[in-house]
C-alpha cells in the first residue's frame, strides 16, 4: 500500500528554490533514508511532507486517514514553560499513564516520566521524541536526524527499535540521516538528495552510483566497506572522519 506520493514537488524558501521537481513515494513497511550534503533540502522535504511548508508547485498526496509520527531534530524549549516528560508525551492527545510508561520503556527511557524536559540530555530528549511519535501508532514515521546526540550504543539501540517498530506496527519510515554506515545497513531504499533527487534505490545500488560517490567522496568507500565487511562489529566510524 502506498502511504505517500510526491509528484513534481518544488519548494521555495525566502524566494530561493530549495527543492526541484521531487518525485517520491513511500510504501507501507518500508524504511527509506534521505542522504545528502548540508543545504541539500533534506529537512525542507520533510517539513513539506508534514505540512509545515507549502509547495510552490506539485503536490503531496497522503493515503486517506494517514497517521503521521514526526521526530524533529532537538528543539529549543523555552525555560518559562514547565513540562514534564509524561505531559509532553500526552501532547496533543492524552494517553493512559500505563501506555506512556510502556512507550518510555520501549524507547529505553523508562523512569524519566516525572523529569522536566529541559533537564534531559540530548540523547534522552531524542528517545522521548521517538517514544511520543510511536504513541500514536503512526502509519508513517518521519525522522529528521533522529539519532543526533545519541552515543554509539544509543544509535544501535535506536535502529534496533526502529526495526522492531516497523515489524510490529508495519509502518513506513522516512528518515534523514548522516550516519552513512548505519543508513546503508538499516534502509530498504536510499534517496540521494541535492536540491533534486540525484539517485535512488537499494543501498548497494546507490553506494556504487557515480552521483553518490561524487557527493560523498572517499567516505562512501569506507561506509560501504563497513557495510559489506564489518556489519557484525560495533566499530567506530573512523572512516567518516577522514
Amino acid at each position: 500500500m502506498t502511504l505517500l506520493t510526491i509528484e513534481h514537488l518544488d519548494v521555495d524558501l525566502g524566494g530561493q528554490p530549495i527543492l526541484d521537481s521531487i518525485q517520491l513515494s513511500i510504501e507501507r513497511g518500508e524504511i527509506v533514508t534521505i542522504v545528502g550534503p548540508n543545504g541539500s533540502g533534506k529537512t525542507t522535504l520533510l517539513r513539506a511532507i508534514i505540512g509545515s511548508l507549502a509547495p510552490a508547485r506539485g503536490r503531496i498526496q497522503r493515503a486517506p486517514g494517514l497517521m503521521l509520527g514526526y521526530v524533529p531534530q532537538r528543539f529549543h524549549l523555552d525555560p518559562t514553560l514547565p513540562m514534564t516528560v509524561s505531559r509532553f508525551m500526552g501532547l496533543p492527545r492524552r494517553h493512559a499513564p500505563g501506555q506512556i510508561d510502556q512507550a518510555l520503556e520501549r524507547a529505553g527511557a523508562a523512569g524519566l516520566g516525572r523529569q522536566q524536559m529541559r533537564s534531559l540530555s540530548g540523547g534522552q530528549f531524542q528517545r522521548i521524541l521517538l517514544a511520543r511519535a510511536l504513541l500514536e501508532s503512526p502509519d508513517l514515521l518521519i525522522l529528521d536526524e533522529a539519532t543526533q546526540g545519541l552515543d554509539q550504543r544509543g544509535v544501535a539501540d535506536f535502529y534496533r527499535q526502529l526495526e522492531t517498530v516497523r515489524r510490529e506496527l508495519g509502518c513506513g519510515v522516512l528518515m534523514v540521516s548522516h550516519e552513512l554506515h548505519v543508513v546503508m545497513r538499516a534502509s530498504d531504499r536510499v534517496v540521494c538528495l541535492n536540491g533534486a533527487i540525484c539517485c535512488e534505490g537499494t543501498p548497494e545500488r546507490v553506494a556504487s552510483s557515480p552521483a553518490y560517490r561524487a557527493m560523498f567522496g572517499h567516505d562512501t568507500q569506507d561506509a560501504f566497506a563497513l557495510y559489506r565487511h564489518d556489519h557484525s562489529h560495533q566499530q567506530a566510524p573512523a572512516g567518516l572522519a577522514s
Partner: peptide
C-alpha cells in the same frame, strides 16, 4: 492542547494536524 503543542514547536503541531 493544540495551543500548547503549537507553542512547543510548530513542526510538531503541523505533523499532528
Amino acid at each position: 492542547s493544540s495551543l500548547l503543542t503549537a507553542t512547543l514547536n510548530t513542526d510538531l503541531a503541523h505533523a499532528s494536524g
